[in-house]
């Protein structure tokens, strides 16, 4: 069983969750939604987090609609934009969900 972690708060508000998720298990997935998508706009904020996730085999996604409504432009090629149908597919693939 693997886990889908969703993060809904801004990196600046909840950096401890991003730090904890650097320990996510290989095969897990992380999806940034709501204010967590704000970090995608800066080319610096998520760089080290995404590198750590990539090295552990943890894929990171960002919800397209939440970026679009906020005017956020994704600066990272390791951060994969998904629509809501992609969110559903992630819950098909991962049996456990943690909403941080």
């Amino acid at each position: 069983m693997s886990t889908l972690h969703t993060l809904s708060a801004s990196w600046h508000e909840r950096v401890w969750v991003f730090e904890q998720l650097c320990f996510a298990t290989s095969g897990d997935a992380i999806l940034l939604i709501e204010d967590a998508v704000l970090a995608a706009h800066s080319p610096i904020t998520l760089a080290s987090f995404l590198a750590k996730c990539e090295s552990r085999g943890v894929k990171v996604y960002v919800l397209q609609e939440d970026m679009q409504v906020r005017g956020v432009h994704n600066q990272y090629k390791q951060l994969k934009p998904v629509p809501y149908t992609g969110f559903v597919e992630l819950t098909e693939k991962h049996q456990r969900h943690v909403a941080w």
Binding site: M1, F23, R96, V98
Partner: peptide, 16 residues
Amino acid sequence: SAGVASLIEQQYRVFT
């Protein structure tokens, strides 16, 4: 932190 990750991994459901 690694222990927290492995605790989560053992669970069927997680409530936050």
